[in-house]
């Protein structure tokens, strides 16, 4: 990556400081802002959904989900994000949009969303109870499992949430401008369980 002369700034810089909040001695919720994520929206061109899935399979060995699921791992994942639409999310320094463009050509329209979304990782034993205070979807393990994702509302704010593992841990993506408001809802919701905010990473 080219060395640029501008510093990036998180929309949460002023509102999410590492530390412990709420009920002392408890860690029901652990919050971490994710950094260094490359996020690119893929929208299949009309009638190219099948070809796109084949190209993704061939290029990365991943099955492009056709239901609200996530395929992949921390390095690269495809997250269902609506009809014939996905978010490709990658960690690291490469140019994700370029690499997608190279391999998918005109099968999909690509749009960089790395800055359009803020992503939080949430974990801890009381994560579900905290989320239930703002999300109306069912996150019970019988209804929502690792790999599942949903586009929904959290505290009246549009979000996309996906579950990573059974801890349980989740990631939740929100439009950047609403990130502060999301934290403004999340921290009070979790304070009865005790919250640890980790440094961004």
């Amino acid at each position: 990556m080219v060395e640029i002369g501008l510093l990036s700034r998180s929309p949460l810089a002023a509102v999410l400081q590492p530390g412990h909040y709420g009920q002392p001695g408890q860690d029901g919720l652990v919050v971490q802002e994710r950094t260094g994520l490359h996020i690119v929206n893929l929208a299949a061109r009309r009638g190219q959904g099948g070809a796109l899935a084949v190209a993704v399979q061939r290029s990365w060995g991943l099955e492009l989900p056709t239901t609200p699921r996530r395929a992949g791992d921390g390095r690269l994942a495809f997250l269902w994000s609506g009809g014939a639409q996905w978010l490709a999310i990658a960690e690291g320094t490469g140019d994700l949009e370029l690499s997608l463009k190279d391999r998918l050509g005109s099968l999909a329209s690509l749009t960089d969303q790395s800055d359009g979304r803020s992503v939080l990782r949430l974990s801890g034993s009381r994560t579900r109870e905290t989320l239930a205070k703002g999300l109306a979807i069912d996150l019970h393990p019988r209804a929502f499992t690792p790999g599942d994702t949903a586009l929904t509302l959290a505290g009246h704010i549009g979000v996309q949430i996906w579950q990573l593992d059974d801890t349980p841990s989740y990631e939740i993506a929100v439009a950047r401008g609403y990130a502060g408001s999301l934290i403004g809802w999340l921290l009070p919701a979790g304070e009865e369980f005790g919250i640890t905010v980790l440094p961004p990473g």
Partner: peptide, 11 residues
Amino acid sequence: PLCGERGAEEF
């Protein structure tokens, strides 16, 4: 049909 059952507030 894509997302599953949701409350009317999402629509």
